[in-house]
Design a protein around this nucleic acid. Structure first.
Lengths: 207, 207
DNA sequence: GGATAATGTAGAACAAGTTTCAGACTTGAT
DNA sequence: ATCAAGTCTGAAACTTGTTCTACATTATCC
């Protein structure tokens, strides 16, 4: 089992009371719910507020914009996925195979809720600087998932981290092309497998 | 010089009259102008219409949404860039080096107009299915640029096309992380160089 | 337990993308 | 030259993200 993986969660601002935690949860739930139906456009702030039983102003106090809300929703979902994936680690022999398997597994999970995936990914790539911290958290979570799948003995080298970054890039972008109907699932699979070859290329074991 | 590269331009719907062509041009110019100032948010449809000397309804007849407009603006700019890049082809020995050089050159061009780049790229990744054809055109243009830089003797193999797809993914995504301030230029450079290694990996010459 | 600051509510108001519509202007065919 | 079809204009209306305001509720600290 790999070394690090500290709490990749939130940086814990002022601690929330129980009712506040509950509100936050209701909001995220409503957001995911609406997104699952109609994707990005269906997540309308007034509707989220109503479905969560919260005033519009309150919603904006918790999440300062629609994009913030959806990125937080993504954090939430990724957290789930991370723990789920950990339960059944990938079986391949090579790191590259394991990463590809893990990503395709994640991909199939998203396939089951394509509208939700659409909402989250669109928000993620549309996010501007004001959402950087939150997007960064998502990015760190994704990195953690990939590093986990690699199952390294030692901490990753700089080269390997570069490869992981590129894999993340490919993962996001491939997801987008699939979501907007410009690439088939088969195509995505090929792209993922292609980019995962970089892992072998940067593996120090071969020295 | 590589083989294909047909007109990667527009699929030429009903031909436009001269005045219409002029209007279209004025609109695209206004769009780029406004984008250069304030990025995505500064491209406001009413302002574009006014700056182009055209009624709002007309603007919407030419470009059915803000995203369509900005993606078309990107097509336009990419076209320029393609011809510019062709004038001074990259000098490296290996295809990977040439592609990396070309992309970094393109990158530096975008750096000079970061706001414009922001507007175009945000539109591109935010585009939903209704913009697929236009986004596809942009994608084909990018592919053409990369294949050009590779300077292949023979038509690319399926493997090479996969590599090019992954490079494109990385290029887009890296651009986004840079634009949203989450990655430095040095970081982007490393990512580009890393992904370009895939080219050597898929080169058939080594057989 | 009461003062007070923070948080939440309802609802109006504002901003920018998009739609609509009646009327004026172009264009192309006859 | 004229008529019909298609285009353009100007202005208003509509939608949805976001902000603001006045008031009610809750939390915190003494």
């Amino acid at each position: 089992m790999s070394a690090e993986v500290k709490a990749v969660t939130t940086p814990a601002s002022p601690p929330l009371t129980e009712r506040q935690e509950a509100r936050r949860r209701r909001i995220l739930h409503a957001s995911a719910q609406l997104a699952s139906r109609g994707g990005f456009d269906a997540v309308q702030m007034r509707e989220v507020a109503e479905a969560a039983g919260v005033a519009l102003g309150t919603l904006y106090r918790y999440f300062p914009s629609k994009v913030h809300l959806l990125v937080a929703t993504m954090q939430d979902q990724l957290q789930h996925m991370h723990t789920t994936l950990r339960k059944r680690p990938p079986g391949g022999d090579e790191p590259a195979a394991r990463v590809a398997e893990t990503l395709m597994r994640a991909f199939r999970a998203l396939q089951r809720e394509p509208q939700l995936a659409d909402a989250m990914v669109r928000a993620l790539t549309f996010a501007d600087r004001s959402v950087s911290p939150e997007v960064d958290t998502v990015s760190r979570l994704t990195t953690a998932i990939i590093l986990d799948a690699m199952g390294l003995e030692h901490p990753p080298t700089a080269e390997q981290l570069s490869a992981v970054r590129v894999i993340e890039h490919t993962w996001h972008s491939a997801l987008i092309t699939w979501l907007s109907g410009r690439a088939s699932i088969a195509q995505v699979k090929i792209d993922i497998e292609t980019v995962c070859r970089l892992i072998d290329l940067t593996s120090p074991e071969k020295s």
